[in-house]
Deep mutational scan, measured.
Amino acid sequence: ADFLSNDDYAVYVRENIQVGMMVRCCRAYEEVCEGDVGKVIKLDRDGLHDLNVQCDWQQKGGTYWVRYIHVELIGY
């Protein structure tokens, strides 16, 4: 899907992401590398560009918070 802005994409992720879902990092962020796959373990839905998504990352080996714009949804 094509999104006009980071805000549009962040809204899409916020409306669709669920705890337990698998996500792929589509934009490297601090300790999380692009392409790493993680399981969503906690969500904080306050802002669009806060650290909203806590995942247990496979490559990184452990949990880390990222923003909506850092992840793509790959289902369960």
Rank of each mutant, 00 (worst) to 15 (best):
residue 1 A to G: 13
residue 2 D to V: 06
residue 2 D to E: 12
residue 3 F to C: 10
residue 3 F to G: 05
residue 3 F to T: 12
residue 4 L to W: 14
residue 4 L to D: 04
residue 4 L to P: 08
residue 4 L to I: 05
residue 5 S to R: 11
residue 5 S to N: 13
residue 5 S to T: 11
residue 5 S to I: 15
residue 5 S to M: 15
residue 5 S to F: 03
residue 6 N to A: 15
residue 7 D to H: 06
residue 7 D to W: 08
residue 8 D to A: 15
residue 8 D to W: 05
residue 8 D to M: 06
residue 8 D to Y: 05
residue 8 D to L: 06
residue 8 D to G: 09
residue 8 D to P: 02
residue 8 D to I: 11
residue 9 Y to C: 02
residue 9 Y to Q: 08
residue 9 Y to T: 09
residue 10 A to P: 03
residue 10 A to M: 03
residue 10 A to Q: 06
residue 10 A to F: 03
residue 12 Y to W: 07
residue 12 Y to Q: 09
residue 12 Y to A: 12
residue 12 Y to E: 07
residue 13 V to F: 11
residue 13 V to S: 00
residue 13 V to E: 06
residue 14 R to N: 15
residue 15 E to H: 08
residue 15 E to K: 09
residue 15 E to A: 14
residue 16 N to L: 10
residue 16 N to F: 06
residue 16 N to R: 10
residue 16 N to A: 09
residue 16 N to D: 00
residue 16 N to T: 08
residue 17 I to R: 02
residue 17 I to P: 08
residue 17 I to A: 03
residue 17 I to G: 00
residue 17 I to D: 12
residue 18 Q to E: 07
residue 18 Q to A: 10
residue 18 Q to F: 07
residue 18 Q to P: 01
residue 18 Q to R: 12
residue 19 V to S: 09
residue 19 V to I: 08
residue 19 V to A: 07
residue 19 V to T: 08
residue 19 V to R: 02
residue 19 V to C: 13
residue 21 M to V: 04
residue 21 M to I: 04
residue 21 M to P: 03
residue 21 M to S: 08
residue 21 M to N: 01
residue 21 M to T: 04
residue 21 M to W: 06
residue 22 M to R: 11
residue 22 M to W: 15
residue 23 V to A: 00
residue 23 V to C: 03
residue 23 V to R: 01
residue 23 V to K: 01
residue 24 R to H: 15
residue 24 R to P: 02
residue 24 R to F: 05
residue 25 C to T: 02
residue 25 C to P: 02
residue 26 C to W: 04
residue 26 C to S: 13
residue 26 C to A: 09
residue 26 C to E: 02
residue 27 R to N: 14
residue 28 A to N: 15
residue 28 A to H: 10
residue 28 A to Q: 13
residue 28 A to E: 12
residue 29 Y to S: 11
residue 29 Y to Q: 06
residue 29 Y to E: 00
residue 29 Y to H: 14
residue 29 Y to C: 14
residue 29 Y to N: 10
residue 30 E to P: 06
residue 30 E to V: 12
residue 30 E to K: 13
residue 30 E to L: 03
residue 30 E to W: 02
residue 31 E to H: 08
residue 31 E to V: 04
residue 32 V to H: 03
residue 32 V to T: 00
residue 32 V to I: 07
residue 33 C to F: 06
residue 33 C to M: 13
residue 33 C to H: 05
residue 34 E to Y: 15
residue 34 E to M: 08
residue 34 E to G: 03
residue 34 E to V: 11
residue 35 G to L: 02
residue 35 G to W: 02
residue 35 G to K: 04
residue 35 G to V: 01
residue 36 D to H: 05
residue 37 V to Q: 13
residue 37 V to W: 08
residue 37 V to R: 07
residue 38 G to W: 01
residue 38 G to F: 01
residue 38 G to C: 01
residue 38 G to P: 00
residue 39 K to N: 09
residue 39 K to R: 13
residue 39 K to E: 13
residue 39 K to H: 13
residue 40 V to G: 01
residue 40 V to R: 02
residue 40 V to A: 00
residue 40 V to Q: 01
residue 41 I to Q: 03
residue 42 K to I: 02
residue 42 K to Y: 11
residue 42 K to H: 06
residue 42 K to N: 15
residue 42 K to W: 05
residue 42 K to A: 12
residue 42 K to P: 00
residue 42 K to L: 04
residue 42 K to F: 15
residue 43 L to V: 15
residue 44 D to P: 00
residue 44 D to E: 14
residue 44 D to T: 15
residue 44 D to R: 14
residue 45 R to D: 15
residue 45 R to N: 08
residue 45 R to C: 11
residue 45 R to M: 14
residue 46 D to T: 15
residue 46 D to P: 09
residue 46 D to N: 15
residue 46 D to F: 11
residue 46 D to Y: 14
residue 47 G to A: 09
residue 48 L to P: 14
residue 48 L to N: 09
residue 48 L to A: 12
residue 49 H to W: 06
residue 49 H to P: 02
residue 49 H to C: 15
residue 49 H to A: 08
residue 50 D to I: 05
residue 50 D to E: 12
residue 50 D to S: 13
residue 50 D to A: 14
residue 51 L to R: 05
residue 51 L to F: 08
residue 51 L to N: 04
residue 55 C to N: 01
residue 56 D to T: 10
residue 56 D to H: 05
residue 57 W to K: 02
residue 57 W to E: 01
residue 57 W to A: 00
residue 57 W to L: 01
residue 58 Q to R: 10
residue 58 Q to T: 10
residue 58 Q to C: 05
residue 58 Q to D: 14
residue 58 Q to F: 07
residue 58 Q to S: 13
residue 58 Q to V: 14
residue 59 Q to I: 09
residue 59 Q to N: 06
residue 59 Q to S: 11
residue 59 Q to F: 04
residue 60 K to L: 13
residue 60 K to P: 07
residue 60 K to I: 09
residue 60 K to V: 06
residue 61 G to K: 12
residue 62 G to A: 11
residue 62 G to V: 07
residue 62 G to Y: 05
residue 62 G to M: 06
residue 63 T to F: 06
residue 63 T to L: 13
residue 63 T to A: 09
residue 63 T to P: 07
residue 64 Y to L: 08
residue 64 Y to C: 14
residue 64 Y to T: 11
residue 64 Y to D: 03
residue 64 Y to H: 10
residue 64 Y to Q: 11
residue 65 W to L: 01
residue 65 W to Q: 03
residue 66 V to C: 04
residue 66 V to P: 00
residue 66 V to M: 15
residue 66 V to F: 00
residue 66 V to E: 00
residue 66 V to W: 02
residue 67 R to P: 11
residue 67 R to L: 01
residue 67 R to M: 03
residue 67 R to T: 12
residue 67 R to E: 11
residue 67 R to A: 11
residue 67 R to Y: 00
residue 67 R to W: 01
residue 67 R to K: 11
residue 68 Y to W: 13
residue 68 Y to T: 05
residue 68 Y to C: 08
residue 68 Y to H: 08
residue 69 I to S: 14
residue 69 I to R: 11
residue 69 I to P: 11
residue 70 H to Y: 03
residue 70 H to C: 15
residue 70 H to P: 00
residue 70 H to L: 01
residue 71 V to W: 00
residue 71 V to M: 02
residue 71 V to K: 02
residue 71 V to G: 00
residue 72 E to D: 09
residue 72 E to H: 03
residue 72 E to K: 04
residue 72 E to F: 02
residue 73 L to Q: 03
residue 73 L to G: 05
residue 73 L to K: 06
residue 73 L to R: 03
residue 74 I to F: 07
residue 74 I to E: 12
residue 74 I to D: 09
residue 74 I to A: 14
residue 74 I to T: 13
residue 74 I to K: 04
residue 75 G to M: 06
residue 75 G to H: 15
residue 75 G to N: 07
residue 75 G to R: 14
residue 76 Y to R: 14
residue 76 Y to W: 13
residue 76 Y to I: 13
